[in-house]
Design a protein around this nucleic acid. Sequence first.
RNA 1: GGGCCCGUAGCUCAGCCCGGUAGAGCAGGCGGCUCUUAACCGCAAGGUCAGGGGUUCGAAUCCCCUCGGGCCCGCCA
Length: 564
Amino acid sequence: MPPRSSSSAPSWCFTTPAATPARRVPSPSISRSTDRGSSSGSPWKPRPTESPTLVGTRFCPPTTGGARTMDETPLEHERRGKVLRLRAAGIEPYPWSWPDRVRSGEVRRRAEALAPGETDPGSPVRVAGRIRAFRTHGRTAFADLEDADGPLQLLLRADDLGEEPYRGWLRDLDPGDIVGAEGHPARSKRGEVSVLVGALTLLTKAIAPPPEKFHGLKDAEERLRRRYLDLIASAESRERFSARSRIVYELRRFLDEAGFLEVETPILTPVAGGASAEPFVTHSRYLDEDLSLRISIELYLKRLLVGGFERVYEIGRCFRNEDADTTHNPEFSLLELYWAYADYNDMRSLVERLYERLGGIVATLLPDRPGAQAAAREFRPPFAQIDFVEALEETMGVRGLLERSPEELARRAREAGAHLPPHASPGRCLDKLFGHYVEPTLRSPTFVMDHPALTTPLAKRHRRLPGRVERFELFYQGVELANAYTELNDPDEQELRFRDQVGESGEDRYAYDADFVEALRHGMPPSTGIGIGIDRAVMALIGAPSIKEVLLFPQTRRRSAPAP
RNA sequence: GGGCCCGUAGCUCAGCCCGGUAGAGCAGGCGGCUCUUAACCGCAAGGUCAGGGGUUCGAAUCCCCUCGGGCCCGCCA
């Protein structure tokens, strides 16, 4: 670390040569001219040979390279002119680095003890961030800087910075520019935590202006398409996505502590199985075969149970070539977990502890978000449990539902508003009925238990209840948050169910995975498995109304070219 | 796939019902101001009214089509 201080003057004083670190070689700043003592001739007087049009009309950029392009706005044109002027003055608008930086939180801590108008006499700090607002006030100016820790005011005075820089390049500074400032923690006379700046360095010139400083970016479409602007303008948005990252991080920690091993399995697969959904299909030139992007992770993870791994999970992107809406995106993140020698009761208890942990995390992360606070309150074990059939019969006011004819079930489902194909299976009808009558009523966390076997071909039959499988789904606020089974591990039954599915649907969307059946023949231990949609889990935990609020870049249509 | 709503300056929005020179604030320009914080004061500028077509003497405004987005319903474990 090179020496920072000078014996002759306060180290932060703008006009002191040692004001900036000696190693700051590739990072020219406004202190550059004084650094090198080039006192002859101000860099602010444009040299006529280089940019003649700067004389007289300050804001008419030079013609060389300054011509306004077709799709450039007047504002951007103006800012490009500033770039040229800065370069003409020997200031690099896009320097290389800004070492020894502290974040605004550090400054805030040091300035907290100060009285209004007081300056911390200790060592200077170097901060960096984007300028959100700029208030000039004659020979004093205020800039609102923002970095990862939040906002921080810069207090800039001509007396500190020097006449030429203050009247010169500071005027070419705009909201949206990224700057580095060196100076002392201070409080303004009004008490605002600030940095009393001794030297200000342009770190990145923004050509395009940021969103409006007070209202931000509201247009829903623009917020999705240009998420970076949403993030610049909205602390709430930044916190939301940070919270998502933390949720996934805590999820991994929880599972690792529980002894589960994270693995990675193929996304490009010959057969997209494990769920009923339309896959995206692509083509391998190497194999000269069509491959599907996975729609679930299930069948590969179960192969690992056959292979001897006893607790595995994967968190990964899955893809379904279907519509997008407030709860669906064509690509989404799925957690699947498989646990040998355990059953769905063990899994239920794991899920309770998991959501309890995550609820506590979001409550801490997002103290001002009602949805997050509600989640922390609600996800307290034990969660409610209801029996699939009992709950449905009670809500519908019908007895013996499982003994009703397929025709009656289809009729009742259609009466409930479901659009069903002519020969919809009874299982499908029961699913529809449950989705219509019961699911919307499940507001607090509720396990729906022991589905009819008809609705769930891939789970193991119930050990006591005939016609049922060992399965649970977790619902919260009417949305499914988890789906778990005691897994089917009988290879012959698995083969039959694959065949039934393919035959019954009459569609090619159900894929017969012969290789998976072959794996089961070698013996998969009794196991339980679960799938949790990460995006929906995050939505539930933070109270987001749409999946687009928890996806950084949700799928959007290509912007169309103007019609001819 | 069906219904409803939205698209005006870089950003946030008026104007649209009831057709008659397209407005404001922020941001940007010029000038002023040594403690402001949505700073303030003065001046000047900034537009493919999403795109195309139609009605009309005249269309941001009325009608049709297209594009993009949002919400609801449907479809999709």
